[in-house]
Amino acid sequence: MDARGIIGWNLRRLRVERGLSQERLAFAAGIDRAYAGRVERGSENVTVTTLEAMAKALAVPIADLFVVPEPDATRPAPLKAGRKPMG
């Protein structure tokens, strides 16, 4: 897995663990939702500044985005479709 793939894997894993949609993560990081999706898919060369903003939105150290997944790890499941109830 290349660096972009590792970053995308960890970004999705952390976002799903926190129950955030791509849209909410993008808003919190001050980036476009489509751009966040491309970063997750590993198709975007992301800047350190953007990585820092996303890590801050996820409340994790930036280094957490560079953790190499175990070879047998399964891709994080997507969040349940639809809007969350207002709370």
Results as ranks from 00 to 15, higher is better:
Ala3Met: 13
Arg4Ala: 13
Arg4Ser: 14
Gly5Asn: 09
Gly5Val: 10
Ile6Met: 08
Ile7Phe: 02
Gly8Ala: 05
Trp9Ala: 01
Asn10Glu: 02
Arg12Cys: 08
Arg13Phe: 08
Arg13Asn: 09
Leu14His: 12
Arg15Trp: 09
Arg15Ala: 00
Glu17Ile: 05
Arg18Phe: 05
Gly19Lys: 10
Leu20Asn: 14
Ser21Ala: 14
Ser21Gly: 07
Glu23Lys: 11
Arg24Ser: 14
Ala26His: 10
Ala28Glu: 06
Ala28Phe: 05
Gly30Val: 02
Gly30Trp: 01
Gly30Ala: 02
Ile31Ser: 10
Ile31Phe: 09
Arg33Lys: 15
Ala36His: 07
Gly37Met: 11
Gly37Phe: 02
Arg38Leu: 14
Val39Lys: 04
Val39Glu: 04
Val39Gln: 07
Val39Leu: 06
Val39Asp: 08
Glu40Gln: 12
Arg41Thr: 13
Gly42Tyr: 10
Gly42Ser: 14
Glu44Cys: 11
Asn45His: 14
Val48Ala: 13
Thr50Leu: 02
Leu51Arg: 00
Leu51Trp: 00
Glu52Cys: 03
Ala53Phe: 03
Lys56Thr: 07
Lys56Phe: 05
Ala57Tyr: 01
Ala57Met: 06
Leu58Pro: 01
Ala59Leu: 14
Ala59Phe: 08
Val60Asn: 03
Ala63Lys: 04
Asp64Cys: 07
Leu65Lys: 00
Pro69Ile: 09
Glu70Lys: 15
Glu70Tyr: 10
Ala73Glu: 10
Ala77His: 06
Pro78Tyr: 13
Pro78Arg: 15
Lys80Gly: 02
Gly82Asn: 08
Lys84Asp: 13
Pro85Ser: 11
Gly87Gln: 08
Gly87Cys: 08
